[in-house]
Simulated assay, not measured.
Amino acid sequence: MPAGRASAASNVSLELRAWNIRRKALLMGEVQGQGYIGQALGIADVLAASYFHALEYRAEDPEWEGRDRFLLSIGHYAIALYAVLMEAGILPEEEYETYGMDDSRMPMSGMASYTPGMEITGGSLGHGLGVAVGMALGLKRKQSPAFVYNLMSDGELGEGSTWEAVMSAVQWKLDNLICLVDFNNQQADGKPTDALAQGEEAKKWEAFGWHAQRVDGNDLEAVVAAFDAARETDHPGPRVIIFDTTMCKGVDFLESREITHFVRVEPDEWAKALAVLEKGKPL
């Protein structure tokens, strides 16, 4: 039986799944004393809904041909994906202690050749959606019912290759492709909204021929509804969900400091962050 959407019927709530993902990410960050923890905490709700509501997969067989594909275009978010792969049972939880170390299956930037469940090697931003288009087209030609999900960043909306992929997906009528955009309004050189005429993102995607939604990415009810709408729409082409997320969500003292693309956590703050998160653990 697929272990993805089928497992949503278990007694573990999506709220607790998201909390577990945040906790695992913090534990890995503490091992190395660094990591893109702000993004991991912010995207945890979307990952929880992805792996425990939307995706079809088999934890014991990550390469099962019938699986939905989940592509991490933003390779530096690997710490977040490792956390959900552990939560899903694809990676053993005890491996968190090897994060970022020599010979680890969990390098600091995601690499498909190292990690079960990691579909592509991310890193050079703007490439993920193009790969997703190729995968979705291949699955269509094999008459597979599987979906391709591509998680990308708001900064990647400034890459020309992204918009070439946007047009290609419409040309091929890829109704099995769902793009997920993490809009936390941070990129390496500043805010995306201060660069390249950002704004009205959903309308731009719609103008290209995509079914587009924009929701609060830290509101699990809204996230789940958006996933359902994306899969169930009769729109004849690709779908996109733009998620507005809060960096460092769930750890208030990190949320409240001035946020940049890379959130620095001091050595004594990892334990403090875990303690704050523990106080907000869902029942």
Rank of each mutant, 00 (worst) to 15 (best):
E164R: 13
S161F: 09
G138D: 05
L47E: 12
E30D: 00
M86K: 13
L157F: 00
E206M: 14
E30M: 04
G35N: 12
A3C: 15
H211G: 00
T233R: 13
R264D: 13
I241N: 01
D194P: 09
A40H: 07
S7N: 12
M108P: 06
E94T: 01
L180W: 03
A136Y: 07
A40R: 04
W163H: 06
D228C: 05
P107F: 02
E30R: 07
L277M: 15
A80F: 15
G29T: 01
S124Y: 09
E63V: 12
D61R: 12
E206H: 14
P62Q: 09
A44D: 11
A273W: 08
L177H: 06
V263F: 03
P238G: 08
P192K: 02
D175T: 13
E94G: 02
A49H: 02
N150W: 01
V240F: 04
I259S: 01
P62T: 04
L137R: 13
L151P: 01
E201W: 07
G4H: 11
E60N: 15
N218S: 10
A275W: 07
H76T: 09
A40L: 12
F183G: 02
T260I: 05
Y36A: 06
R105T: 02
E269F: 11
E56D: 10
L125M: 10
E269Y: 07
A212G: 01
A202C: 03
M152V: 08
E56P: 01
A230V: 10
A88K: 03
S73P: 10
P107K: 02
F253M: 08
V166N: 11
Y36M: 06
S10A: 12
C179N: 05
G66I: 07
Y149E: 00
R22G: 13
L125A: 12
V170P: 08
D194H: 06
E63Q: 12
E60F: 06
Q187E: 04
M28S: 03
P107I: 02
K142W: 00
Y77E: 15
R214M: 10
G138S: 14
C248S: 03
G158V: 00
G126W: 10
H53C: 11
G38R: 02
E206V: 08
I79Y: 12
G126H: 08
G35W: 04
E30P: 01
T115G: 02
S153L: 01
G33S: 03
R17F: 04
A25Y: 08
E97Y: 10
G42I: 09
A212R: 04
P192D: 02
W19D: 04
R58C: 13
M28Q: 03
A197T: 00
M111A: 15
P2H: 13
A165F: 03
L283P: 15
L283C: 00
M101Q: 15
V166H: 08
R105M: 11
L85V: 10
G155E: 00
L157A: 03
V215Y: 01
E60S: 14
A48P: 08
G123K: 05
Y36L: 11
T246G: 00
